[in-house]
Every structure is written in structure tokens, then in C-alpha cells.
Amino acid sequence: REPLSASMLASALPHVQKQMIGDRLYPLIYALHSELAGKITGMLLEIDNSELLHMLESPESLNAKVEEALIMLQAHQAEEQTD
């Protein structure tokens, strides 16, 4: 499977662009947090496409963002429970 490029994305509609990135991102996140992969991927897809492409190429960037998303998600869930 060839890497996702900006030019490949440019030819797709905006919501399809997110779909294309999500399809690449999800397996990488699943390997880190299988149970929360869907939610974490959904959160990360709110980031700019250019940064998402960078994350696909850079495991360190991806890991950092996944950890950030995980903290936000846990804080959100804690808030829901105490509300």
C-alpha cells in the first residue's frame, strides 16, 4: 500500500479525505490502544490534514498525539461520570 500523499488527498472531497486518512491512521492507533482506537481516531481526524499526513509518516508525532487524545478522552469520561 503506497503512502498517502497530499496530492492523492487533493483529488478527493473533504469528508473523503478524512476517510482516507482515518483508514491509514486506525490500524496504527489500534496497535497502541485497541479498545479506544475508534474514538481516538475520531478525535485525531479533527486535526488539519497536513499534520495528519505528517503523523502517518512519524510514529513519534503519532504517539504524542495519541497520548494527548487519550488524556482528553479520560478527562471527558471522568467529567461525564461525576456530572
Partner: peptide, 26 residues
Amino acid sequence: SNGSSVNWPPEFHPGVPWKGLQSIDP
């Protein structure tokens, strides 16, 4: 008790059309 924040974040499923942002935006 059925606030929309409970549905956050939108969950991505591989192979399923993504409409996460559309479901959040008005």
C-alpha cells in the same frame, strides 16, 4: 441526561464513511 457531549468523540470505523465532523457541526 442525553446531552450530545456523551456522543463525543465521534467514533471512526474502518471502511465506514466518515461523517464525524458533520455530526458535530450544526
